[in-house]
Amino acid sequence: MHHFTATKMSSSMKMADQIDANPRLLLMLQHFNIDFRVSDLTVSQLCKQYDISEALFVDIANLYNGFGTKKDQAYTKKDLLQVIDFLKNSHHYYRSDMYPQINSYILMLQKNHPEREIKLLEKFFNEYFTEVLEHLDYEDNVAFPYFIKLLKDSREDSAREQFSSIEYSEHHTDIELKLHDLKNLLLKYVNIESDLDLRRKLFFALYELEYDLFVHSLIEETILIPSGVNIEKKENA
């Protein structure tokens, strides 16, 4: 039995120890397309093996560990393309893993408890899920292609006019809000009799999702958007 005491990661630490201190890093590895069998490698060796920038890896890991990133970090264009891949992979995790899982729990809950209140909860979740999908689609189809273009071809700015990093940050809606509502409703208000196993699974899934969404938006707000703004400034200068 131990408490998690995530400390700030540095590149000389062993990856396996880091996962032991904060198992949420497994999810980060997956988003980076890194296998979970990390052997005895240090963070630095692991990054080399997978050709990922060490600074970027450590910064994102520290967001997962509950620390902020340094301001005005200079990320290379290659780093930022990796950030986009990372974010795309997490979209995949939301879309095809987390949300279907949560949805199935809610459907089961509704089957076990025919009250109309639970039906409303399901409706609430579905509406929310639709909004999330719209947001993810927007990022996949509009925002990310824009960033990729910005990063790849430097001067040929043909499809540039309808978008900018600032606009993206404005569009960047708060999809954590309704998740928070759902959790609060289940914790504080909606009365469901017993069924603790199912409800615990639902809670764990909601917390897991909430945490990853939280880090996800931190990555966008503290890494991707500021870097995008910087590149735009340079190129418009």
């Binding site: 609060n184 208000y189 909606v190």
Partner: peptide
């Protein structure tokens, strides 16, 4: 609770 549908529940 912040959303309208959440407040309904």
């Amino acid at each position: 609770i912040r959303s309208q549908s959440g407040l309904t529940i």
